[in-house]
Design a protein around this nucleic acid. Structure first.
Lengths: 211, 211, 211, 211
DNA sequence: GATGAATGAGCATTCATTCAT
DNA sequence: CATGAATGAATGCTCATTCAT
């Protein structure tokens, strides 16, 4: 997955250059999209020649794959925070909700996600990476929900899976909303999102089952 | 928007050919993506020459625009159904929830939506069409929620807007879930989705505000 | 040269249709140029289908060739006028000069001429037709200049050839002037053109030879 | 107008490549015309790939624009010569007449001019460039004709304008003559051209006005 | 390590021409 | 006689990738 082909003398320099390219690429993808951004522009942004990039990445595809790996790291650290925070899960997650909304309504970041998903539909490597990241994310979430600090600790696996997926769906869907309806604000979203999230983090009331 | 350019003798043939192209294009876009599918391939799939397509569509862009319009029509007819169904809104929407889930977890259809969104980020015409479609969808939804048959008829505009967007977010997000986690079933999703949807269609409880 | 291929029942209708096409084509070429005008547009202007044109002309090229033949006829009739007018040649030609200027500064007509010349550079058939037309034009002009009513009747062949070519050059060049300098008026041109033409139609003064 | 787009390390190489392309393009345009010559052929003639041309020229249009600019430079240097030569204008211009004839009867060069004119009829940028070049040429000519060394220094603007345009018409028209009548020699042309030019560079005789 | 000159396959689109009806 | 649906080769141009220096 990581720098397979070329032989490099100085691993530190290699990592620095890779970061340089990754940052530049993320910036370009944000502004122009994955297909809209050319290698020439990425190279210019990274402050190196187009050809040189190929000493650190096998292809343009390999760049977006690396970015996905980076994003996975970020996601892990978010779950890390949740896990380290004291208090019950419901309070923690609702307390962090506004930050989650913020992250999922940041159009800059979202455009890349959109491109990554679209790419995943056709590109197996990307699909696999995203799938892996998602599997881990669901797992971390599951750990959270079955911990002693959660109100859902003794629920069935399937119900947990459902809750997790609906939560993720609701959050990830926000960037679609923001794209189609840019006037939508985080504050507005939170009005209904908080109760919905609360529902998803608490045992369902009995008469729910009736419906 | 609708076939302005060429003069055609037989309107039935025109419609047949347009459908032929639209179907072929949808198929190709599904498999290769909007940018990945070439006109040559679309033509081959449609069983006609590449040049001939231009007798029915001004450009490749016009094809995806037509597909968007088709989708809009479908969406309208869904809202039409809701409006025509007797009973209270909550019951109607919860009753149709499984159909909505089914539709939003159909990866075939959704992959095109993904491409359209990605295209919208770069292509103004597409963005405008999607924005229009969404505006109308939100409006229809709002009409539903403020009707006499709804429990939310006297809520504030902002709260309604929030509910609508969270509902749409949750539903639209499902196809992202299905893409990242193909094993996810509609039944599983419904377990948590129904209570969440119920929350979003009913007045919030007072102590929600405390959180 | 004229309608070789297809068998037609009614020769009168054929000629009517050919004229229809020729007129339409001339109009389109004037507005859009030879390459700019498409067969579809010519067909529309002629009030018939594109395919039908091919029953009367082998190709687009054949159309411009026919137009050239038409123009040749016009040119002949102009010389006919000169030949039939009473009086000396100098007076006749100077008297008609304003009409010649008018014709050669008509941008509509000139654009076609330009295209025909450009086409001639690459297309042998067109080149041959234009060459033939020109040969005949020079010949008619020569007949005029050696007639009893001319001041140049006993000049050498080479000098006559020179005069004719310079006269034609000066007149034909006017449309290049009009294209590059559209504000140029016929009146302005005539101020210097008349004396120059007079020089070209009268014996040169002796001391001219000195220069 | 002058290579704005790409960053290049070696300006000498850039100039060499540009020249290479310009020469190849001129050659192709001569043989096939501006529209007839494809980028592929130009590239092959220039000994480089089609894509590479775009590192030196923004478009095919930019190539012909560069050729026009080149021609403009040549024209300027011709007027420069006239301005720097000692003696009266009449003598200078008549003395250079044979060179002018030579240049305007060089079919190779002129065929491109023809294409440029034809292109100008449809392409605004080309039209503007040619118009500018012509405006400057007329201006330089006018300066020549109103200098102390000219016999026309005190003539009216309109008459000067007329003389200049007729002179240009006569000269530019020569290449049309050469195209239609390739046997025409420079010597033959000069026989009548010289007296006509002389007329155009000297005050008209009084009885001219009578005609 | 680093450059950027060079490649060439690929793209959407146009249009003269053909031919079944 | 007449149509217009259909073709397909050709066009200008882009861009990820390679490689001599």
């Amino acid at each position: 997955m990581t720098h397979k082909s070329k032989r490099h003398a100085d691993p530190a320099l290699v990592e620095a250059r890779r970061t340089q390219v990754l940052d530049a690429a993320a910036d370009c993808f944000r502004r122009k999209g994955y297909h809209g951004a050319g290698m020439a522009e990425i190279a210019r942004t990274a402050g190196m020649s187009a050809g040189h990039i190929y000493n650190y990445f096998e292809s343009k595809e390999a760049i977006i794959e690396s970015i996905i790996e980076q994003d996975m790291q970020e996601m892990f650290s978010i779950f890390q925070e949740f896990e380290e925070q004291p208090g019950d899960i419901l309070t923690i997650l609702l307390g962090s909700l506004h930050k989650g909304v913020q992250r999922h309504m940041d159009t800059g970041a979202c455009v890349i996600d959109l491109d990554m998903m679209a790419e995943a539909a056709r590109n197996n490597k990307v699909a696999t990476l995203l799938h892996e990241a998602d599997t881990q994310a669901r797992d971390r979430m599951r750990q959270l929900l079955i911990s002693d600090r959660s109100l859902l600790k003794s629920h069935s696996e399937q119900e947990l899976d459902s809750r997790i997926n609906v939560i993720f769906s609701m959050m990830a869907g926000l960037f679609l909303r923001k794209m189609l309806y840019p006037e939508l604000t985080e504050e507005t979203v939170l009005i209904a999102l908080r109760p919905a999230m609360k529902t998803l983090l608490m045992p369902f009331e009995v008469h729910d089952e009736v419906l």
